[in-house]
């Protein structure tokens, strides 16, 4: 659990008191700002370390996206409320919660991208049937510009539709499309691949 190391008018500095090198790992967090890309990722990882488990889905979303303003505000509000409670010593166990209740989830991959829409093959995760497939035409306006620049045929995503309840208790229907940022093949992966290919080549003529 991270602790507040110091507080300024414009930022909080966090670290872990159980970690002697906490100051080295301390992270700087801007208040209520419109954080872009790498800074946002830092912010979100901090939110994650605060154990807002109910937000795990959106954390995945935000790692890959230019998060929409609404999400920025939510994260900022969460952090503000957390530190308000922490600094004022009102309730150190307070963990603010925003809940997301998924009504429908799909995993999909892009088949083709057009000028205004992309076509995707979807696997219905809610139906829990590994072969319940659908095909969708989704307006490109449903995804962020950053994603639009990076996706292509074969890109894998998760699409969730559900209700989100804010800190203020407001309930709203939301739709999230989250592209998976699959890590590059590591050296270990390549070693495992080479080992497998070597094994295969004992009995299969490799060209």
């Amino acid at each position: 659990m991270p602790q507040l190391l110091s507080a300024y008018t414009d930022r909080y500095v966090l670290g872990s008191i159980s970690d002697e090198k906490s100051s080295e790992k301390a992270s700087s967090l801007q208040k209520n700002d419109e954080i872009e890309n790498s800074t946002r990722q830092e912010q979100i990882s901090l939110v994650y370390s605060l154990d807002f488990r109910t937000y795990s889905l959106d954390i995945g979303y935000s790692e890959n996206h230019n998060t929409k303003d609404t999400h920025n505000n939510i994260y900022s509000n969460l952090i503000d409320e957390y530190f308000f409670n922490y600094i004022s010593n009102k309730n150190k166990d307070f963990i603010p919660k925003i809940t997301f209740n998924a009504l429908q989830e799909w995993e999909g991959y892009i088949l083709e991208i057009g000028d205004e829409k992309f076509t995707a093959r979807l696997l219905d995760l809610t139906a829990d049937a590994s072969l319940a497939e659908e095909e969708a035409e989704i307006p490109l306006s449903e995804i962020s510009k950053n994603d639009r620049d990076q996706i292509g045929p074969g890109s894998i995503f998760r699409w969730s539709i559900g209700y989100e309840r804010s800190l203020a208790g407001t309930k709203k229907r939301v739709s999230h499309i989250v592209f998976r940022d699959i890590p590059a093949l590591s050296k270990l992966d390549m070693i495992a691949g080479a080992r497998w290919a070597e094994e295969i080549s004992k009995n299969i003529q490799v060209l």
Binding site: G108, Y109, M190, G193
Partner: peptide, 20 residues
């Protein structure tokens, strides 16, 4: 059956895959 293709196939298989 090309070697580089097989190595990469083996490497991909080593990763956890999404449902699709």
């Amino acid at each position: 059956c090309q070697k580089e293709f097989l190595i990469r196939m083996g490497a991909v298989a080593n990763k956890s895959a999404p449902k699709v």
